[in-house]
Design a protein around this nucleic acid. Structure first.
Lengths: 128, 128
DNA sequence: GTACGTGCAAATGATTTGCGTTAAG
DNA sequence: CTTAACGCAAATCATTTGCACGTAC
C-alpha cells in the first residue's frame, strides 16, 4: 500500500471524527491542511480505503457517509435529523452469524445493521 | 391516499418482483404498461410509498433499490455481483431490539441488517 | 371544484473519467 | 525507474425541481 499525504490526512480526519462525515465534509476538512487536494482524490481514497477494509460507508438519505473501521459496530439513525449513534455488541454479531450459517451458502464477511427511529430530541418534538 | 394508475403499476411490479429493482428498472418495467409515465413520477411515487411504509429502500453501491415491505426481513448481499438474498428471522429481530432497549434513548421503529460477503458463485470464482 | 398527481425539460448534486503531471517505493 | 496517485476539468448518472396540465375524490 502506497501512503501519500492525502491518504494520510483523510484517514487522520476520519479517525478523529466522532461524526460520520460526508465526502463534502471530508474534502473541506482536509483542504485546511492540503489546500490543493481535489475532490477526485478524496473519492479515490475513500474507495481505496473501503476496498482495504480500513473505512466503512453508510448511506443516509442518498448521501454517503464514512467512518474508520475500528471494530464492527452498528448504527442507530434518527429518521428526522439523521443523527447517527454507534452501537456495538459482539453477542448480537455472533447471534446473527450463527443463525445465518447453515441457512445459506453465502460467505458472510461483514455485518451491517441499521436501526431506524427517532432520537430523544426528535421524539420529544413529535409529541404534538 | 389517492390511488393512481401509475402508483398502482409501480406497486404491482414491485410486489411481483423477487429481485430488488432499481429506479431505472422500475421505470422500464412500468413503461411497458403506461408508456407515457415519466421518471419523476416513478421517483415521486417511490418516495410516497416509502413514507407510507409500503415500500422499503436498500442502497447498494450507491444505487437505490426497492421492494415491497411485506414483512421485516434482512439482506445478504454479494460484494462482487450485488445479488441480494432475503433473510428473515423473528428471533434475530427480537434479540437485537431487546439488546438495544435500555442501552439508548432512541425510539427504534425499524431494523435493517445487511450481511455482506460472497455468494456461492462468486466465492467459487475467487479461488484462484 | 380543488388539491394532489403527472409529464416534461431543465437544474442540481454526487460521483466518475480522461489525461497530463507528480511523487512514493 | 516505474507505477500508482494526483489535480483539474469535463462528463456522466441519479435525483430534484418548476411549471402547465390532468384527474381522483
Amino acid at each position: 500500500m502506497k501512503m501519500t499525504n492525502q491518504r494520510l490526512e483523510i484517514l487522520n480526519f476520519l479517525s478523529q471524527s466522532a461524526e460520520h462525515p460526508s465526502t463534502e465534509e471530508i474534502y473541506n476538512a482536509v483542504k485546511q491542511k492540503l489546500s490543493r487536494i481535489s475532490k477526485a482524490t478524496v473519492y479515490n481514497n475513500l474507495k481505496f480505503l473501503i476496498k482495504h477494509d480500513i473505512v466503512k460507508m453508510v448511506n443516509i438519505k442518498g448521501v454517503s457517509r464514512f467512518e474508520t473501521q475500528i471494530r464492527s459496530h452498528h448504527h442507530i439513525i434518527c429518521k428526522k435529523c439523521s443523527k447517527i449513534e454507534d452501537f456495538e455488541s459482539e453477542s448480537l454479531n455472533q447471534f446473527a452469524i450463527d443463525l445465518i450459517r447453515g441457512k445459506t451458502n453465502f460467505k458472510i464477511e461483514q455485518t451491517s445493521m441499521n436501526f431506524l427511529g427517532l432520537c430523544e430530541k426528535c421524539a420529544a418534538k413529535s409529541i404534538r
